[in-house]
Amino acid sequence: MLVYGKQIFFYILERHKECVNELYLAKDCDKKTFGKILSYGFKIKKLDFKTAQAYARGGNHQGFLLEIKDYEFVSLSELKEKKFIVILYGVSDVGNIGAIIRTAYALGAEGLIYIGEKLAMEGVIRTSSGAAMDFPIALCKDILSVLNELKQKGFYLYASDSKGQLVHTLEISKKPKVLVLGGEGLGLTDKIIKKCDECLGIAMKNGFDSLNVSAAFAILCDRIMNA
């Protein structure tokens, strides 16, 4: 699995050195930066610009690339022991997924369930600025079954919807919590919303009735975590 970009390059070397298989440089570094890279103990493989562009599939690699081990997903059972987890249903944009994971990790959420058979972790790790490397993620196929299992475990289920009750007016449950977010455009189905205990919305002004899913998540997560 290849990741690239200066920030994620050093984040992984500093926090997850054991995951690195190959280290590539496609630029000349100043003495201090080069010395720092050498200190991690990896053999540096130099790439020309054209090869680096091919490795990064045209992405902005900034001359810093790493080949790392595949991300290891966790099981749903492991996440059942957490206090606050996030479920993404129909969210496909890796930029949004990465931003949600970065925010979730920074604000204290403890894990994520992605409804789907696969997730492009190269992009998610990059767009989360590395936070995905430290954040447990489970892949599950059937959201209704997942919600049933979590409810039986004692979780209080919140759905995010533009027509939901305003989050700043609600008393947030003291139980372990789940926040369910729907995809860009379609949102959550009525079946999913009915499975949840409450539906949360955000007060909007100036004629707008929706936010980008990652922006909405940041607001809801902050309100839930700091209620």
Rank of each mutant, 00 (worst) to 15 (best):
E78D: 12
I85S: 10
Q62G: 05
G95W: 11
I87H: 04
V91A: 01
E78V: 07
A109E: 07
D70P: 07
G95E: 14
V74M: 10
E67K: 15
L65R: 08
G90I: 09
K69C: 13
K83C: 03
V91F: 00
K80S: 09
S77R: 11
L79C: 11
I68G: 01
Y89V: 14
A99W: 04
K80Y: 07
R102K: 15
Y89R: 11
Y89H: 13
I97T: 09
I68C: 03
E110V: 01
E110D: 02
D70T: 06
G90V: 08
F73Y: 04
N96H: 03
Y71E: 09
A104D: 10
Y71F: 15
L88V: 09
G90D: 08
A99I: 03
I100F: 08
K83V: 02
F64K: 08
I85D: 10
L66M: 03
S77P: 03
V86D: 10
A104F: 11
V91K: 02
S92W: 05
F84S: 05
V94F: 13
Y71P: 11
L107V: 15
L76T: 13
Q62A: 10
D70Y: 10
N96G: 00
L88W: 04
E110C: 01
I85G: 10
F84M: 03
I85L: 15
L65I: 15
S77I: 09
L76P: 06
E78K: 13
E81M: 09
K80Q: 13
E81I: 06
L76S: 13
F73H: 01
K80W: 06
I87L: 13
L79M: 11
L107A: 12
K69G: 12
K69D: 15
K83Y: 02
K82V: 02
I100W: 10
E67V: 09
E81Y: 07
V86L: 15
I87D: 04
A104G: 15
G63P: 05
E72F: 07
G63I: 12
I97L: 08
L76F: 12
G108T: 06
A109K: 02
T103W: 05
S77E: 15
G108I: 07
I85Q: 12
D93R: 14
G108Q: 06
A99N: 09
S77D: 15
E78H: 08
N96K: 03
S75G: 06
D70E: 15
F84R: 03
